[in-house]
Each structure stands twice: as C-alpha cells, then as structure tokens.
Computed example of a mutant assay.
Amino acid sequence: MPRHSKLDEAMKAGDYLEKFFDRVRMEKIERLVYEAKANSLSSNSDDANKVASLAHSFFQFSKKFENNSIPSSHPSPQKFISSVGLFYGWLKGVEEKFDNQFGDNILPQIEGALEAMEETLRIAGADTPSPSIIDILDKVISAKFARLASYMLQRRKETVNNVLSARETITIGDEYDVQDLYRAVLSMYCDTIVSEDYVPAFAGVKRSRVDLYVPEHQLFVEFKMTKADLGQKEVIGQLNEDRALYPSHPGCSFLYAFIFDPTRKIADPQAIHTAFDGINKTGGGREIKMKVFILQEPVAS
C-alpha cells in the first residue's frame, strides 16, 4: 500500500479515536479515578488499591490519544498503530484479570475503550486482535445461554396423525442438559472438545472427571446448575474441590466454571467471584487461572 494511503488511514483512525476520548469522556474517567482513589483510602484493601492504580493508569494511557496528529503526536502511522495495539493489549489483560473488582462504573468505560480501539485498528487497516477463548465463552455463549435455550424451545409445529405438536427439542432440566447445549455451541470455535476426561486423584480428593476439556487452549470447563439441594454453599464446596483437583491434570492451565442459576439460589454471586476468580496456586505449586461465570436468568418458554 502506498505510504500516503497508510498515512490517510492512520489519520482517519486517529480522528475517530480523538472523538471517542473527547473532553466529556475524559472528565468522566477522571472522576471515576478520584472515586477509586477515595475508595482505596477508606477501605485500604489490596483489591481497592489495585483498582485505583489501574484506573489511574487507564486515565493516563487514554490521555495519550486525545491528540493523534502525525507526526507531531505520533512519529509515523506505524508508531500510532503500534501504540493503539499496545494499549488494547494492556487493557484487555486488565479487563480479564480484574473485571469483577472494577464494578459498574469503570468497567463500561474500559469495555467502550476496547471497542473503540478495535474500530480504530480497523479504520487504520491493521489487524484487529482476535477474541480470546475466554471472550468467546463469556460474551458469545455464557451471557446468552438462557436466550439460546429459549430459542431451542421454539420449534416448528407440525401435524402428525391429526395432532398439532412441536418437534422434539432439548430442554434445560439439569447440568447435563446445560453441558450438551453449551458444547454444541462451543464446537463452532474449537476443533477438539473432550467430554468427561479423567483427572487424577489429588490431596485426598477422589478421582473425578472434568465436564469438558479443550486441549488446544489447555482449558477445562465445568458446569453446574442450581436446584433445591444445590445452593450457594454447595456450589462453593464443589468449586473448592474443582480448584484443588483439576489442576493436577497436566493439560490444565485455565479452569472455567459456568454456573446456571435460573431460580437465583445464589444470594451473593460477588462472594464467589472474589473467592475464585483470578490466579490460583495449586497444592502442587502450579499456578492456573480460574474464572466463574454465574448466569441468573430463566429460560423463557
């Protein structure tokens, strides 16, 4: 591509990003930084301190894109694109690692900035970073699972022996139904999915089988569906066993737990996120990442 075309694309992309990080948005982010700092001072907790520090870094990083002229602010189109890519990568890691600690104020700003940078890279003719497998689990499958299950109930009706009835379908009655439907969708994104792979016994916890294993991502996916005898206390007990047991499998680097709670048996989801999300050290000294997704949405019939 001719140099002037790359320059034109980069300048258009820079204009777009300038409009995103306008004065109103930057003032709002700055206010959120002050709020995070105040919360950090009042609580003096490690999580609050980390959030305040990351919020401040987010604000300072964003300020670099208030003026995107080339070459006065960025020496070349390539340098501008590289800076956007670095910011995107850093912020993506921050979102994945601390999304449950940010709360409802800062997180939407971070998600909006990520979308804006993806669009900036597209306008600049650069490769848009591919979504991670955890993005796909979170945003494509887990968040929309109840809607997907609802669509499965809306089957075509036909007359058989003068009786009008809907075709057979899958209904979500227990965690095995959840697993079957989830796997069907996940198979569109992963070439190999192993069901109920055995995990060696560890530290007195009996030998078990993980629900789904995705070797290409060293990912284990565990499913739970709340019911009368499976509420928050029981879910926490099972997650503790999962965290202790599954990392003993040599192919496990990430443990993802999808908890379908359509009747809201879990009273305090945040307590579960705080206890399990993030990097966990196993009894064998290994570090693995773990994330819990709790969906409290009924399946509409």
Rank of each mutant, 00 (worst) to 15 (best):
22 D>I: 05
63 K>R: 15
16 Y>H: 14
96 E>D: 15
1 M>Q: 11
177 D>P: 00
301 S>N: 12
139 K>H: 14
70 I>A: 03
199 V>Q: 01
129 P>C: 08
270 Q>H: 15
87 F>I: 00
66 E>M: 15
123 I>G: 02
20 F>T: 00
111 E>R: 15
173 G>M: 06
39 N>T: 04
140 V>F: 07
10 A>Y: 00
52 A>S: 13
91 L>K: 03
225 M>Q: 10
291 K>F: 06
67 N>H: 12
94 V>N: 03
52 A>H: 01
190 C>G: 02
271 A>E: 15
213 Y>E: 01
171 T>W: 04
244 A>R: 03
149 A>M: 08
60 Q>K: 12
154 Q>T: 10
261 D>E: 12
22 D>K: 08
224 K>A: 00
131 P>D: 08
276 F>T: 04
124 A>C: 05
182 Y>S: 09
300 A>S: 12
53 S>W: 09
79 K>R: 13
32 L>W: 01
67 N>L: 06
19 K>R: 13
120 T>K: 06
83 S>Y: 01
247 P>L: 11
173 G>N: 15
77 P>S: 07
201 A>F: 08
292 V>A: 11
252 C>K: 02
145 F>Y: 14
3 R>F: 15
195 S>P: 07
124 A>D: 04
298 P>N: 04
229 D>G: 05
269 P>Y: 02
80 F>T: 01
4 H>P: 00
24 V>C: 01
219 L>I: 13
184 A>I: 10
37 K>L: 08
125 G>C: 10
152 M>D: 07
296 Q>N: 08
125 G>M: 05
38 A>E: 14
58 F>N: 07
241 E>P: 00
71 P>F: 08
233 K>Y: 06
175 E>N: 04
